[in-house]
Write a protein that binds this DNA or RNA. Sequence first.
DNA 1: GTTTTTGTACCGTCCGGACAGTACAAAGAA
DNA 2: TTCTTTGTACTGTCCGGACGGTACAAAAAC
Lengths: 206, 206
Amino acid sequence: MSKRKTSHPTVQKLLDTAETIVARDGLVGLTYDRVSKDAGVAKGTVLYHFASKEDLITAMIERLVSRFDAALSHAMGSDPDARGRTVRAYIAATHEGDAFTGEYFDRVNGAITAALANTPERLAAVQAQGRRHQDAIIADSPDPVLGTIVRMAIDGLWFSESLGLMNYDPMLKAAVLARLKSWTYGKETPAADTHQDQQKGEKNAP
Amino acid sequence: MSKRKTSHPTVQKLLDTAETIVARDGLVGLTYDRVSKDAGVAKGTVLYHFASKEDLITAMIERLVSRFDAALSHAMGSDPDARGRTVRAYIAATHEGDAFTGEYFDRVNGAITAALANTPERLAAVQAQGRRHQDAIIADSPDPVLGTIVRMAIDGLWFSESLGLMNYDPMLKAAVLARLKSWTYGKETPAADTHQDQQKGEKNAP
DNA sequence: GTTTTTGTACCGTCCGGACAGTACAAAGAA
DNA sequence: TTCTTTGTACTGTCCGGACGGTACAAAAAC
């Protein structure tokens, strides 16, 4: 019946469609009818691959988790400096690639994040990922507390943006990211380097 | 009809009830029937005070916003040091009082936060509050970028906890909070010495 | 010949909201 | 005082519609 390979083209197409719907209308807009119509398949086909709506949502979550892990690995792979590599890749994955930036992904991630809130069944994969990242950050950060703070700040920024709660000034945001990144190497004291990263502005999308 | 004073006892009772429901079952569990039954009033009464479900949700959000502002003001009022006062109060309000801590409020805040995701109609009050806080932080922080980072880190921690995404080790968390707080006073942090290289990681990718 | 897809008809449930009506108290009118 | 009006608070029922999921027979596709 359903537990087929996730690489199945129809499965991917359905997940893409579901993602688009969720990005536009949120989780409430996600119905079998809508998915089937938008994907151009019969409703029965959607049911065939995803026996319940929870299955569909879970699959979306797992795909996002995998994608982020891939982006993280990629960023780590191209970083020659081992110290603080994980948390630096964390910054890169969320703000330097294009996989997890932009309006569309903000909306998708926002909606999916919202769908996670205190729903233990859905949280498992994400919690595991969070713990894994945290362990890795602790392990390779010269200053684990500082590394954790960087991660939390990135999280805060990410949540605010994907949920649409805050809109930081691009210049300020660029300065924040530059400062956070400089901390990952473990040499400076956070409160000391107050003057050099201000004009380090990047173009970065609003 | 509906637009009565929010201090009306029945209104408060209904909001309390709605909050409890949301804390237990999330937003999806919030129905007129449930609220009326749990509050011990007729369904019509709920309709009388909240003409639509959106009204009810909006009222819950606004009450939470007010509460947080009150907690922030309170924390600021008892802080003699003007430098970084806002962001320090931000830390205190989220981690030192009991108004915004604990399992119950994590669940309420998580569910409500989730309900905000990219729904412009509901976001207004929260966005305004976010901007207000940001302006205040910028205004009284000795180092605005650092102040913003502290705020973002607090946000990240707060989101992770209230959405149930992460569970940080209490010791680590305490160390993080202590470090963040120490930064709020300005640059007289210990060992504020050298700031050399800094361009080592600035090969900017985007 | 097994997997995948289609198409349609259907069911039970739940929910938002409309609505008509009751209870009552305060404010005038007599 | 007594009667009438008016507005507020609250009640309980009802309905249209949507949605998740079932059932199934049969056709493609691999």
